[in-house]
Every structure is written in C-alpha cells, then in structure tokens.
Nucleic acid binder design. Structure first.
Length: 108
DNA sequence: CGAGTGACCCTAT
DNA sequence: AATAGGGCCACTC
C-alpha cells in the first residue's frame, strides 16, 4: 500500500460523524493538494465497510454519484442515518469551498 | 507516446 | 442557478 493511499484513508477516517468533506478538501488534508481525482479513485476501489466514505462529497456539497444510482442511494441513506439532511442530492448546510483554509462543512 | 476516462475542481458566462 | 470549458491526476489500451 503506497503512502498517498494511506494518507487519504487516514484523512477520511478522521471526519467526525455527522460532518462532511469535499474530495479536494480530503486530498489537501492528506497533504496531497490537487489530487481530488486520486481520492475519488481510491474510494471507488475501497472495500472497507468501516470507512466513512459516505462523508465525502463534491466541493459544492452534492453527492458525486449520478442521481438514483446504487451508490447515490446508499450514500444518502448512510448520511441520513447519522443525522445529516440530504435534499435533491445536496447536503443542507454545506457550502462551496474554494480557498485553502475553508471547510466544506464546519463552524459557520 | 497519444487518446480516452472518471465517486473532481475552478472560473467565467 | 445552471452550463461550458479547461485543468488535473492516474490508469488503461
């Protein structure tokens, strides 16, 4: 297992229950700025059921899967299960993040 | 080496 | 708010 993969998985495991992060944000927190696509790829290959992969969303707070796809349904289900409100594929309260030190979800 | 692909991101319309 | 166009990274053929 390479370092990048380990760093990314670690960053995801740290996301608190009931909160969400963006792909680019996770990459940044893992010390790999600009590797959002790598995060997505790692997740697509992940098989660990204990990993809170459902807490990772696109930078605009929307679920990355196509609406109504298997993954989409499962992700919104798992989010709602821990108290996160999801409506029309978007997490309520999440805001687009652009700069380095902003968070997709966090203290307002 | 080049072209295509994707659980992405940003800026400009 | 929704689209379009580029940019990016890693991988496959």
């Amino acid at each position: 297992m390479d370092d990048a993969r380990a760093a990314i998985l670690a960053a995801i495991r740290v996301i608190p229950r009931g909160q969400v992060r963006g792909y680019g944000e996770v990459a940044r927190l893992a010390g790999l700025p600009g590797r959002a696509r790598l995060v997505a790829r790692i997740l697509s290959e992940n098989d660990d059921a204990a990993l809170p992969w459902h807490r990772v969303l696109r930078s605009d707070g929307r679920i990355a899967f196509p609406a109504r796809s298997k993954g989409y349904v499962e992700q919104s289900r798992r989010l709602k299960a821990e108290g996160v409100t999801v409506e029309s594929g978007r997490v309520r309260g999440a805001r687009a993040v652009r700069s380095e030190d902003e968070a997709l979800w966090g203290p307002k």
